[in-house]
Design a protein around this nucleic acid. Structure first.
Lengths: 198, 198
DNA sequence: CGTTGTTTATGACGGCGGTCATAGTAGTTC
DNA sequence: GAACTACTATGACCGCCGTCATAAACAACG
């Protein structure tokens, strides 16, 4: 997880991964390309080669990666739940963040959120990448919910609610350097979510 | 609201106001000081004079202003409701955003969110300003809820939930260029909120 | 060995942005 | 009117950053 060794993944993958990490922490604008290369232990010359589309391409791929990662993560949470309930899933999603924050501090937020804030008005492709990332993520959540017996029409809406509440709570938690907001939304939203299983 | 005329407010106020607007749209890092001065129709030389603390000071004041603004706005929403209910208040808070987005487009997000994303790890004072802004806002919401009969212990938690869900929905809505996420959280959260009045 | 295609190295360019230095203007007070 | 304060005007500095140009290593393969 840390400092991605130079062997297991190719330089290209490592750079996308590092970009996501740095964006998550400092935002898109404050993240430099040279910095990404250094962080990924990748040669600077590879930037041009793998990302001829420049920074925008790198950012877009990082956002896309983050979206797919979030989706897979939801799938794994679901698989790990002994008796799957909406509140249980949401609890795990939230716990991922409280765990990180208590373990290593409040340095990072969600890269998709960062890209949206920094690029939504500047770069249409990046905004679309963010939109797609949310769609991936929300798709996984909605599928999980329907699998638990939540009616199809409702599942999408609840997925949006869960992701919105989580994203907002991440923001507040980072600002306050306190996981309070995260645990609060998990606790308050739990019953509502479980009430949707028929 | 637009292009702040040069008379009603002083140059200093206008710059803080403009900073908030630009940060809201492009993020903190992408907002230049010279740009703020131009947008505020303020002399460039006044930047040093009014904000000797540099960009950080300007950003912090913009964030503080945004927090107080959000708080006052909640108070006004509350006052305007004929029969105050939590869902009614939340509906108004959400509607402020759907109205803006449908009227003038998805150019802007929440300046406090932008400051958090861009500066939380870089600048402790700015992070604290963001935290204070959330506290102002959330304080107003919590007071409004208690006034509607929500038990004190619960009001704070629900205020956090409301603000988190709203912030997250703003993000998603901006990425998707669609108010869907906003209307969804308002609809889904309404009953839960009203159920808290004893 | 030669050739071809992939990857890396490096330096330069041009632009922008925050900050500083310095000086100028305007308004007020003694 | 002189002194003093509040404000404005500019230009310069310096650093960072994304990008480009160019060339070198290196691998695979005929």
């Amino acid at each position: 997880m840390a400092a991605a060794e130079a062997s297991r993944y190719g330089a290209r993958e490592r750079m996308v991964f590092s970009a996501a990490q740095l964006i998550r922490r400092d935002g898109v604008a404050a993240t430099g390309m040279r910095e990404v290369a250094v962080h990924a232990h990748a040669p600077r010359g590879s930037l041009q080669h793998y990302f001829p589309g420049g920074k925008e391409q790198l950012v877009n791929e990082a956002v896309g990666w983050a979206g797919r990662y979030a989706g897979k993560r939801v799938d794994r949470f679901l698989a790990a739940l002994s008796e799957p309930t909406p509140s249980g899933l949401f609890g795990e999603m939230v716990r991922q963040w409280t765990d990180e924050y208590t373990a290593v501090g409040f340095a990072g937020g969600c890269p998709v959120a960062a890209a949206t804030v920094d690029c939504a008005e500047t770069s249409a492709p990046t905004r679309e990448a963010a939109s797609a990332a949310f769609a991936d993520w929300s798709g996984s959540v909605a599928r999980a919910l329907t699998g638990m017996g939540v009616p199809q029409e409702r599942a999408g809406a609840l997925a949006t609610l869960m992701i919105s509440a989580l994203e907002g709570a991440i923001l507040v938690a980072r600002a306050e350097r306190d996981v309070r907001a995260l645990t609060t939304v998990a606790r308050e939203l739990g019953p509502l979510l479980d009430a949707a299983v028929r």
